[in-house]
Amino acid sequence: MSALLTVQDLTIRFGGVTALQQVDFTVQAGSITALIGPNGAGKTTVFNCVTGFYRANTGSIHLHGGANGGSNLMALLGESLQWSDLWQPKRLGSRLYHKMFGGPHRVNQVGVARTFQNIRLFNALTVMENLLVAQHNQVDSGLLSGLIQSRRFRAQEQAALQRASAWLRFFDLLPEANRLAGELPYGHQRRLEMARALCTQPRLLCLDEPAAGLNPNETKALGRLILTLRDRFDMTILLIEHDMGMVMEISDHLVVLDHGEVIARGTPEEIQRDDRVLAAYLGSEPA
């Protein structure tokens, strides 16, 4: 196995608060890696850094492989301009370009997709439209070809429809393809959000508490779906989850965060035996 994502030395501060302190971990290609930790440990902050919504103060995030042989995810966000750029026109140009066109969407374009803790669907759009929006970069979005409904345009729309239908079938949402996303039951919305993320054809899928609000049966089914994603679709999954039963059952690798620092990493068995993890969750006894 090789590493797909390497996070090194990640530190981020909000005002005076250090939210993440030198976070290091790797995600192996084709694995399920879970980020766990008590509330406020910084799990979602890590997610927001990896998916490009927050820019870390220091550190690096690399996504390996892919069409261009690997990407520095932080560079895709754009960096602030510096005075020294004035006599380095090339760097100025690149920084300007990234400042203008950089952002989380670029991170998605190189292969990282995510879901959100508080589901973010396009509520007034249908289920199918939600999935078509996710394929924005894979279809011909040119104005003219769409206006004249060119053959190429229609073929690509059809292909997008096929892809969307395939994922809908996988998540058992096909009968609801033409319903509004906002009127779906909660559990279905969670699955739709995963389907939508997968429609962007990512190499790394980041799931932020996918089991939150699901009942035990739904959680079990979700765990099986995530395993299938790994086994049948070779998907690499990074996941935040509070449901320890599911985490221990499906993860290959765990990273434990507490107060913005990584306090342990390893297989589920190793983590279950780790004293520091126990202390973080239950509160440590004063020695």
Binding site: Q109, A113, N137, T200
Partner: peptide, 27 residues
């Protein structure tokens, strides 16, 4: 036509949820 084209869908998606749009690779 625009309403049934990628660009028109992206407009409406942006209206509904900008953050989600960005997470799906839409600038």
């Amino acid at each position: 036509r625009l309403k049934r084209m990628p660009i028109g869908r992206a407009w409406e998606a942006l209206r509904e949820n900008e953050v989600a749009c960005r997470s799906l690779g839409i600038h």
